[in-house]
Write a protein that binds this DNA or RNA. Structure first.
Lengths: 127, 127
DNA sequence: ATAAGAGATAAAGTTTACTTGAAGTCAAGG
DNA sequence: CCTTGACTTCAAGTAAACTTTATCTCTTAT
């Protein structure tokens, strides 16, 4: 069982953020010791990693809340949770496609700069 | 020359957002008619598209501001602008890589759901 | 004994990027 | 004439996700 400090060191997530996630219901069943201090086990860690992956891919807190709520409901919600993940997967794939398209525009801009620079170079040589 | 309404229809960007971008200095040389109403030409449109691409790839307003400021400085800032774009390109590539990594985690979760569902199915058949 | 250090809660504050609202201008249509 | 519609500006409001602050408790080292 890990303290909150150990978890921040392991995950790079700030302690207030971990408390905030828990308060918002994103981290089910985090235990406490006799003094009320948080204790994280392996399962908590994998929840943290999962939530982090969802956040990093742009899923809003509110939607993760809903997911965890369904998880707590038990096996009867498996198909709905799967649907949420499938939908989110499509979202990520769309984001990636858009990033590639916009990356093309940046690359085009960079190509223009290359032309500009070589023009400037040639001009300088002439002088 | 296009009115702001025509530009919103063409680009899907709300008029207040266009005004906001202009006020923040992201859109250089947008002209006005004799009554002070905005008129956009082809160059303005391509600035709008460019700014949109930068925003969509996560560049903060403040950094775009800096870029446009350099642009206004003239040719002497070309290499710095190019450096900004190169750096941003690396950023986008990093984002894409991270999205792929996190997509893998989501796919792993989905695979787990497939196993779970087939287990449930088999259990039901037994009953 | 007591002061430091880790952790807790609750509430307020911050940041970023817009968005909305209030109030005014101006040309055109009934 | 005067109202409607499409603008304008400036200021204030909003949403999301944290982050900071204030205050309190408890264990531990001096």
């Amino acid at each position: 069982m890990l303290t909150i400090k150990e978890v921040t060191e392991l995950t790079g997530i700030a302690a207030p953020t971990l408390r905030y996630y828990e308060k918002e219901g994103l981290l089910p069943h985090v235990k406490r010791n006799e003094n009320g201090k948080r204790l994280y086990d392996e399962e908590d860690l994998s929840w943290i990693h999962f939530v982090t992956a969802l956040r990093a891919t742009g899923m809003p807190i509110a939607q993760i809340q809903k997911y965890v709520y369904l998880y707590k409901e038990g096996d009867s919600t498996i198909s709905e949770r799967k649907r949420m993940m499938l939908y989110h997967k499509k979202d990520i794939e769309r984001s990636i496609r858009e990033l590639y398209l916009n990356l093309d525009k940046i690359n085009y801009k960079l190509a223009l700069y290359d032309v500009l620079e070589s023009q400037i170079e040639r001009t300088s040589i002439k002088i």
